[in-house]
């Protein structure tokens, strides 16, 4: 019979893994115009021009920006929307 502490650890990890939210990341692409990326952010997320520009600049300068985090289904929805506008977007588990 395994010790309880040996069992607890994997179960906790599994629950933690299942609970971990997803995040949507937009990656830099030099072809996409800055104004276009800003417009897409405003359309997809309903952001103000200021917030959309901040994220656009983060993509441009740092190469990526986390634009949303939450449930898997909604993350898939956002990635699909961003791909529909041809932005380079991926989803990953929040570290």
């Amino acid at each position: 019979m395994p010790k309880p502490d040996l069992l607890e650890s994997p179960e906790t990890d599994l629950l933690h893994e299942l609970d971990r939210p997803w995040q949507v990341v937009v990656h830099n692409d030099p072809v996409n115009l800055m104004s276009y990326v800003t417009m897409v952010f405003r359309r997809v997320f309903g952001w103000t021009a200021e917030k959309a520009e901040q994220h656009m600049m983060e993509v441009h300068v740092k190469g990526r920006s986390v634009v949303w985090s939450g449930g898997k289904e909604k993350a898939e929805h956002y990635v699909q929307q961003l791909h529909g506008f041809l932005l380079l977007a991926t989803m990953e588990k929040v570290p």
Binding site: E76, V79, Q80, H83, T90, M91
Partner: peptide, 23 residues
């Protein structure tokens, strides 16, 4: 034009089957 949504195998499979054709 149709990049993968990430590197999770299951995610990519589902994407290929349903999302890519729609896009």
């Amino acid at each position: 034009l149709l990049p993968p949504p990430g590197d999770h195998g299951e995610l990519i499979e589902d994407w290929e089957d349903h999302v890519r054709p729609e896009l």
